[in-house]
Simulated assay, not measured.
Amino acid sequence: MWGWLCLPVVLCLLACPEARADEVGCDPLAIDLTVTPQRTLIYASLKETVKVQAARPERADVVLIGDSLFAGWRTDLPAAFPSTSIYDFAVGGDRVPSVLWRLENTDLSPLRPSAVALLIGTNDLAAGTPACAVATGIETIVERLRTLWPKTPVLVLTIPPRGGDFRALDDRRLEVNEAISALGRRLPDVHAVTIDDDAFTCGQYRKSRAADSDASARLSCVNYADDNLHFSTAGYVVLGHALQAAAEAALGKDVFR
């Protein structure tokens, strides 16, 4: 069983020159847990999942997929992009297995969007999932999306900073983000959207790293809510501009209007 689970990683190392050499050592159990679809075990998230599934529109120009970092944008999207029909298919608290489960249990095929954006992984990291398994899980989601909508470009956002000093989980977060960047270079119609960690944290990320600050230090930025995890209204404005610029550069057109 474990040999079968490791096969995709080994094949990738042989076929993909940008794959990390240490991926072959990724714990097969961690990969199995991450890429196996699993309905969320969080009651509030399950209730939100049901609502999101029921709210599937007949059509959508853009589909957002992810966790609370996208779900928190839902009410502001019509005003932010009045000329774009956006289906926010994100659920707070979700991890990679939850997203895979929702993709398997929601018929999204009629939508045929012009673009899909994916932002997932921060909850997986917080749960202790190894970076290599999170990266494998993100790629698995991307492959499902490419199968679902073969002609639809996929924009994969890097995981933004979090924590009191904006450096929580940074060792694994940065590793996953490197894998996302490589994914964008390796797969056709897949585009990595790199969130500028320093700019998005109002310059606090660079300062905290330069000063090697205490992890207990409490920094603040207008782009974040008080928990330094979720985004504020200002943060979503910045995120929207990043997606607009990325779509223009990758697709030659602004699908976020």
Rank of each mutant, 00 (worst) to 15 (best):
W4H: 12
V9P: 00
C12H: 13
L13C: 15
C16S: 14
P17D: 04
P28D: 14
D32C: 11
T36C: 01
P37A: 14
L41E: 15
I42P: 02
V52G: 06
R56D: 05
R56M: 07
P57D: 09
L64G: 09
L64Y: 05
G66H: 01
D67E: 14
F70N: 07
F70I: 01
A71R: 12
A71Q: 12
A71G: 03
R74I: 05
D76F: 04
P78E: 10
A79R: 15
F81V: 05
F81Y: 15
S85L: 06
I86Y: 06
I86Q: 11
I86G: 12
Y87Q: 09
G93K: 08
D94I: 00
V96T: 15
S98G: 13
R102Y: 07
N105D: 11
L108I: 07
P113Y: 03
V116R: 01
V116E: 01
A117I: 02
L118Q: 01
L119M: 13
L119K: 00
N123I: 10
P130V: 06
P130Q: 06
A131H: 08
C132V: 07
A133K: 05
A133P: 04
A133N: 06
I138D: 00
E139M: 09
I141K: 03
T147E: 14
T147A: 12
L148E: 06
K151W: 04
T152E: 14
P153G: 09
L155S: 00
L157V: 04
P160M: 11
L169E: 08
L174K: 14
E175T: 14
E178V: 05
A182G: 03
R186S: 11
D189A: 07
V193A: 08
T194Q: 15
D197T: 02
A199T: 01
T201D: 04
C202Q: 07
Y205K: 00
K207L: 14
A211N: 13
R218S: 12
L219H: 08
S220T: 15
S220Y: 10
Y224E: 13
D226Q: 11
D226M: 07
D226L: 09
D227W: 06
N228R: 15
N228G: 03
H230I: 07
H230Y: 11
T233K: 13
T233I: 10
A234I: 08
G235E: 06
V237R: 13
L239P: 10
A246Q: 07
A249N: 12
L251Q: 04
